[in-house]
Design a protein around this nucleic acid. Structure first.
Lengths: 221, 221
DNA sequence: ACCTGAACACCGTTCAAGT
DNA sequence: ACCTGAACACCGTTCAAGT
């Protein structure tokens, strides 16, 4: 199938269970067995994504969770639904970190630190998180989860604060910056020296933010 | 299947045929019918990738080319082999452009122009070219084609020249820069306003290059 | 040396029957 | 309301037979 991952990322925390308490379809509480199945599916998906990558066979996941394939499909109509559930806990942590950093003294350092944390998040599961972040950032996307919305809010606030402090020049679009972070994660996902390369690339991005904004975007020719 | 593309990119030029003259396996000239099949497969793959994206069914491609599935498999053992053949002509053009720009007066503008051309290339076929560029950039990759090797050579030369001219500060790794270009293409591949966003992001990258190099890559915490 | 095309394996999706 | 699991559809890969 695919190369295996070295380390298994930490499991999603209580946030996942908070999601499972209410059915994503009805809004009403889930039946106890349905909720158990939901949680088993998310847990086994997390393990399978770690082992096989994004393309882990769905029936393998349902088999490990001890449910039929139709049950997986009922809870998660698309693969992306399942993926988002797996990532939910990690994103919540990122949001919390960002909120804490909003009161840090050095606004520029706070931004830098949060972007590095976001990059670390984006790198999980072979750049899978990066792909989800990226698709959630597209405007016409009605799939952008609540978690992602919060994440972008925090990112924008940190960027605005850094700009007000004078450390970041001119008008960088927060969505652009976050897209770049996801893009870096994607770019290094299979590189042998991935994390050091990602570090250098993020430094390049931070330099671009610090620089006085010069628009040299003349058209192609 | 998938959303359709607006425009069909220009066909690969003579370079593709140059490849087809010798079998990729033996090194000796291909039999006339084999070569015809090779070319028909590349042409139909180009069209199918445009219509369906990267995941165009292989048997659809072989069906349109009028050959059996085994023939496609003989010429192109993996999907990536087929993709590389489709992109070959475009990459050759990019290399030529870069070589011409090596003697331009303004080294910084030359780099900027070539990076924008590289970005345009990376955007073809829904960011498919970006994925191929990116995987070719990984060091342990024995699949990096001759074309890509030339491309990275040209990019490195343009960057070095811009650095010597003083317009680009310090030591940016050419591979990092090209990875960023591919990453930008990937990030905007499905965005509604993709090309304008890509433009802004590339400007951010250029700003990062122009800035005096500051290394703020302190570890995570 | 190359091509054909049937056979196989794999995997996602649906749905009738059951609780 | 939810679950099961067989059935179906789709697609990549192999390989024996043919030229």
């Amino acid at each position: 199938m695919r190369k295996r991952y070295r380390t298994i990322p930490p499991a999603g925390n209580g946030e996942v269970i908070a999601l499972a308490e209410h059915g994503p379809r009805t809004g009403r509480p889930m039946r106890a067995d349905a909720r158990r199945n939901y949680e088993k599916l998310v847990e086994q998906a997390r393990i399978a994504f770690t082992e096989f990558g994004v393309d882990a066979p769905l029936d393998e996941i349902s088999r490990r969770a001890g449910v039929a394939s139709g049950t997986l499909y009922r809870h998660f109509p698309t693969r992306l639904d399942l993926i988002e559930a797996v990532l939910a806990g990690q994103i919540a942590e990122l949001v919390n970190l960002g909120r804490g950093l909003l009161t840090a003294e050095d606004a520029s350092a706070a931004l830098s630190r949060w972007l590095r944390a976001a990059l670390a998040h984006a790198l999980t599961y072979r750049g899978l998180a990066a792909a989800v972040m990226n698709s959630a950032l597209d405007q016409d996307n009605d799939r952008a989860s609540t978690w992602h919305a919060q994440m972008f809010e925090v990112g924008a606030a940190l960027l605005a604060r850094a700009r007000r402090s004078g450390a970041v020049g001119a008008d960088a679009d927060p969505a652009d910056v976050l897209k770049m972070v996801g893009a870096i994660a994607w770019a290094v996902q299979d590189a042998p020296d991935g994390s050091t390369q990602a570090d250098r690339m993020l430094t390049l991005l931070m330099n671009g933010l610090h620089a006085p904004h010069r628009s040299d975007s003349r058209p192609e020719e």
